[in-house]
Design a protein around this nucleic acid. Sequence first.
DNA 1: CTAGGGTTAG
Length: 679
Amino acid sequence: MERRLVSDAEAVHAHIIKTGAREDLYVMTFLVNVYAQCGAMIAARKVFDGLPRRNVVTWTTLITGYVHNSEPELAIRVYLEMLETGSYPTNYTLGIALNACSSLRSLELGKQIHAYIVKYRIEQDASIGNALCSLYSKFGNLDYAVKTFRGITEKNVISWTAIISACSENGKAASGLSFFSEMLWENVEPNEFTLTCVLSLCCTVMSLSLGKQVHSLSIKRGYQLNLPVRNSAMYLYLKCGLVDEAYKLFNEIESSSLVTWNAIIAGHVQIMDFASDNLSAYQGGTRALEIFLRMIHSGLKPDLFTFSSVLTLCSKLVAQEQGEQIHAQTIKTGCLSDVVVGSALVNMYSKCGSIRRASKAFVEMSTRTLISWTTMITNFAIHGKTQQALQLFEDMRLVGVKPNQITFVGVLAACGHSLMVDEALNYFEMMQKEYRIKPVMDHFELLVDMFVMSGRIDEAFDLIKKMHYEPNEFIWSALITGARLHRNPELGLYAAERLIKLEPRDSETCIPLLKMYRAVERWIDMSNVEKLMRELQPVKLRDWSWICIKGKVYSFEPNEQFCPGNNMEMHMLLEDLLGRAKTLGYEFSGSSELKDNEDANISSRIHQSEEFAIAFGLLNTPKAAPIQIIKNTSMCQNCHDFIKCLSILTARKIVIQDRKRLHKFVDGKCSCGDFWGLL
DNA sequence: CTAGGGTTAG
């Protein structure tokens, strides 16, 4: 946004004085507006105060100035002052006053003004209706916003945009889109504001096809150079996986704003979630880190959005070194006081394996939201700190913060770590009775896991029967493992048969059933399953590990011939460590899981991908630095044993974030407590 | 002479 310069305003001011136009109220009102528009509110106020007469427009101009320069409390004070002098507000005045209430987050004041509006029956007016619509939307009352919108007699583009963005604000993307189609149906032309908002809705519902249509509509309407439109289109393409398309927009944007940079970084972070084989998404992550550095280099000042994205990026890359540098920058810029940034920082330290620093960052936060509490609880659970997690949950309730579904996932996970099944059941009941929260799949998975691990198979099965979801792969696999461990072949067979009925199927899914048939010696069934397995596509997850050093990602595969770095050196280091581990009592026997796996070569020791990553880390980081690794599949028990030894032999902290949980190896022990559940 | 709507985050 181009801003007027104060010097220009002063020139205008001087001209007005010279020409003697200062007697003219219209001219002087214009001057107040000029000062306001360049952010010089003190000067604007000075001009206003020096006026012999004022009309409503003059008052409204000053109020507007304060609202636009983020001083809503002053805006309201002037509004009340105006009423005291006996001036009647116009629809414009009321609209901007309502706006001040939104930014002040004062619903009470808004309601007072609303009462006045109701008294004069001017709710149907577009300027007022639009403002009311966004006010109530900001306070989470979408129903009322819709009602107000419907009542507006002459809806304009802004009314439509207001209701669409209200839906977006309140998490009703689909309703927002249906308002958009209604708008088109009514032949109201969307403008750049509308299109921007709609593009971001397409992004929320992840509808690339719709998004493309809206984007081309924007171009057709001549908004291809509009920055917000381009930013949201770029973000949409990035999130939907059209990375090249997104970069095309990114590179074409000449006067890219801070938002542009933030959006491309955030987009990369968003697509980095564990899916299957997303090495390229991880490489995209390093690219995002580079973009961040480039942005700083170009002299742009990062803001809250930048920091929260880039801290999350570090947590996903397990890049503590970078994270610490960014931590320092958040302090320097004063951004750390923001809740979102603070929560992201807590998460970053925890995911990098430092629960102590995470907890310190949490304690130092000046304000905490539900998300901050949930982040800390969940991370205590991830680190196997059951008591701290549960204590924090009680603290949170004590200060009156209401937990949500995700909080309870953290709480149940904390119980799971210590196999506290009955406590977990109590929390499960509390969630439903006290907080009226519907359990989701994650809750059931955790409970089933706990039941199975503590040998309470029947209860696991009862729970599965009671839940109102179709059991997934995890649930059936857990039950099968439990049934095998506790010798309940009927239940195991039942679960295995249900497992292979799930769609989509792959040959991996059939293995539990195969094992069940083998155990009960049903050879014919076994050969049928084998036949089925041959027909199905083997969708085996490739095993990858990554290590991030100085903002660069290095990836490794198992038994790799050629990896980044010096091959020979890494192999020798691993052989040496393997030999020394044996003196510590490490023995490669092959875990039970590995024995079942046809591919596993038991006679010779296969180096898993994480072992290469560790070796690379040992060779390329300072002596005492922690080794931080990401792995896309779950670790096997054998590796887990070996890495425990490595943490002694190398005297390093080794952190591995695998598909399922965080392992922090220190002095021969792992934070997971050797409890890594099933599958 | 004054308004009402937009993009990026844990």
